[in-house]
Amino acid sequence: MLRGLGNPRFLRAVLPAISLAVILGAIFAVNPRTMSPIGLNLLLQLAVPVALATIAQMFILAVNDLDLSIGGYVGLVACIGATFLNTDPLLGVVLLGACIAAYAVMGALIHWRNLPSIVVTLGMLFVWQGIAILVLPTPGGAAPGWITAIMGFKPPLVPFPIVAAVVIAVVVHFALMRSSYGVILRGAGGNPRAVARAGWSLLKTKLAMYALAGLFGVLSGLSLIGLTTSAQANIAMPYTLLSIAGAILGGSEFVGGRVSPVGAVIGALTLTLATRALTFFHVPPDWQIGAQGGILIVVLALRALINRREVA
């Protein structure tokens, strides 16, 4: 019967979009005030840094690794952004460049020594956090004016967070899913041996993917301080779990190089909105984390159902 509804591949691709539509519809129904440009702006603003962190996580997932350090890393970027980048822009840019390079080295290390990524990134989580506390021991600092200006930009008609989400999704989609080197990068996760036999360096692909993750982590941290106007070392700690859940919700798999940039952005939006919806429904906070997990399980269960169709 399900087969009649359409091709499983198509169903799988639209599932994240359907979950987002359902949650957005529920929020609109409960609070019609949200159905305005200002409302959508308030609702989706904080989803932009989450979406960028989710894309970073997705690059790591694409090469069969898992990044447990992204939350600490985004926090470090936020701290550098609110201090050095503001007072000494050149030094700030150099430091952020060094962060990206460190991420690439982390990828290389995992490849060379054949280390489990979970162990390496879990260790690095504390390294990022420690450096962040050294950079900014007490909450504070100030985001550079140009970042707050970008994040506070109000385009006519469409709210900025929606524009940002579409741009992120489209750019990454074309770079990773449509370009020829994108195919190699994903292939390194899907079938590393075949990619290596074809003469491509697996080390280079890991370096590239981890560097890309580092770059999007930087974008995430900067967009975050653009919204909060200041930083704090542990400001992005929840991003580790949010980014993994968002990417998986959006159709990525833990293994096999199967990822979806558009899905990842939608997954991040869905997760952010899910928490917001729960407050609008007056769900007590103690239940909210559980309810978030519940939403994740429902969507994944639906996907498992579709996957079974796909195999059959």
Binding site: N31, L42, Q45, L46, T228, T275, Q288
Partner: peptide
């Protein structure tokens, strides 16, 4: 739920909308 600044910022934005 988690004593996080980003979470509380979202909570305040919700209150604006409410």
């Amino acid at each position: 739920a988690e004593n996080q600044a980003t979470e509380q910022a979202a909570q305040i934005q919700n209150m604006i909308l409410q």
